[in-house]
Write a protein that binds this DNA or RNA. Structure first.
Length: 427
RNA sequence: GGAGAGGUGGCGGAGUGGUCGAUCGCGCCUGACUUGAAAUCAGGUGAAUCCUUGCGGAUUCCGUGGGUUCAAAUCCCACCCUCUCCGCCA
């Protein structure tokens, strides 16, 4: 959520920055107008309230001083109090209504792109920052896509999972399940070593949590909702982990807070029919190790760079070729101020595919979730900055391992760093 | 799911209609005393919004939302959450 004060005081600057996401896509005019009305009402209402409080006190004093509750003097005050009550009953709903409208409009506005985010219209304009591991890119002759490898080895079952659930669900079997589990353990171990505190959060979350991290209200159709309850299946561990500290005031000395979490993620992938529909790339349920940071605003840019490096470290350890993209303003996620995507090399596609997305939300989520910190000895509070990134998506990593490590005899080598987890060298 | 108890400031814990944003204790901060610390003493110590150039002022917040009243932490209604016992269960 953007700071209403910032919009009020610098509307032109806010407009300019929002336009970087797409010219004219967002209009703050109504917010500015409603905010003006709301403040006028608030001033009026607060003055009435003040007089009403005064009357309340006066009546109390008079009665204590010996006047009868039904004496003329007291009755006159009561009458005035009743009058004010009538006028307040008019103003209050108006003000509340305005506030609700403003809130709804604010929740629908995306974050301002950071000054450093490259300006562009679409993913075409994303900027490649660096590439790693070209020497590990396999020869392209006779390569199979990962779903064929998985089926041949009998470690991924697509058809049976569809019977059990729906299309875009899979079942991992035997060594496939073990490899999935090994990847999870390996990534968690690495990230814990890098300083992240592991969490196993709830996999169902309420609407308030989804609103704080900004999946709601705009992207409701992307998540699975439990019909009987105000509970949703998490689309990413970002939601429960970020919301761990919702409505809290942290001590400055507690920052930074680093968490990692392995969770399954559930996404409806609405509107994605027919796209990337083979294999492990786009499923309704997938596993992910997520990194989440809560940091002091002055450090968040550096923390973001470090977060990306922590995600990259996994790909490097697995010797999977990848590149780092800096997303342009036109491709930037709703809540992000700045975002790097990691893309891993998928030989079957002959291209890089997203395997991690590392975003700095600055105070956007913190504002929505009311996550603040207090500086020692100083009055008031500030919003923390939140960041998160995949470290990494497990299913896509599995796909990348199967394809990049396949051998001409149809077997798949196990990356060295996973061998201790799997206790074997070949699939 | 049933019965009972309860939700007040960082913590503990008062407060059952009136000047209560809330006694008090602990914690924390500042100052005095001290070579320093402890102890002691004095003062201070929540958040948010609006008005104001500033000084400052006003309003809101005692789980949440309604209601009664001139006036609600306090009374009424609904809901949420926590604890204890029972039931059920991995």
């Amino acid at each position: 959520m953007l700071d209403l004060k910032l919009i009020r005081e610098n509307p032109e600057a806010v407009r300019e920055r929002l336009n970087r996401r797409g010219a004219g896509a967002y209009d703050i005019g109504p917010i500015v107008e409603l905010d003006k009305q709301q403040r006028e009402l608030e001033t009026k209402r607060s003055q009435l309230q003040s007089r009403s409080n005064e009357i309340g006190k006066l009546v109390g004093q008079k009665i204590k001083g010996g006047l009868k509750p039904d004496s003329v003097e007291v009755q006159a005050l009561k009458d005035e109090g009743n009058e004010i009550k009538v006028r307040l009953a008019e103003l209050e709903p108006q003000e509340r209504d305005l506030k609700t409208q403003i809130e709804a409009l604010l929740l629908a506005l995306p974050n301002l792109p950071a000054e450093s985010t490259p300006i562009g219209a679409s993913e075409e304009d994303n900027v490649e920052v660096r590439r790693w591991g070209d020497e590990y890119i396999p020869e392209s002759d006779g390569l199979l896509p990962h779903w064929e490898i998985g089926e041949k080895l009998g470690i991924i079952n697509f058809d049976r999972a569809v019977k059990v659930a729906q299309t875009r669900f899979i079942a991992m079997v035997g060594a496939g399940a073990a490899l999935e589990r090994a990847l999870i353990s390996f990534m968690l171990d690495r990230q814990i070593q890098a300083g992240y505190l592991e969490v196993i959060p709830p996999l169902l979350v309420n609407s308030e949590s989804l609103t704080a991290t900004s999946q709601l209200p705009k992207f409701a159709e992307e998540s699975f909702k439990c019909a009987e309850d105000d509970l949703w299946l998490i689309p990413t561990a970002e939601v429960p982990v970020t919301n761990l500290y919702r409505d809290e005031i942290l001590e400055e000395s507690q920052l930074p807070i680093y968490h990692c979490a392995y969770t399954p993620c559930f996404r409806r992938e609405a509107g994605a029919h027919g796209r990337d529909n083979r294999g492990l790339i786009r499923l309704h349920q997938f596993n992910k190790v997520e990194l989440v940071k809560f940091v002091h605003p002055s450090t968040s840019a550096q923390e973001h760079e470090n977060l990306v490096r922590d995600a990259e470290a996994i790909l490097q350890a697995l010797k999977l070729p990848y590149r780092v993209l800096e997303l342009c303003t036109g491709d930037l996620g709703f809540g992000a101020a700045k975002c790097y995507d990691l893309e891993v090399w998928l030989p079957s596609a002959g291209r890089y595919r997203e395997i991690s997305s590392c975003s700095n939300f600055e105070d956007f989520q913190a504002r929505r979730g009311n996550i603040r910190f207090k500086e020692a000895g100083k009055k008031g509070t500030k919003f923390v900055h939140t960041l998160n990134g995949s470290g990494l998506a497990i299913g896509r990593t599995m796909a990348a391992v199967l394809e990049n490590y396949q051998q001409s005899d149809g077997t798949v080598k196990i990356p060295e760093v996973l061998q201790p987890y799997l206790r074997r060298e070949i699939l």
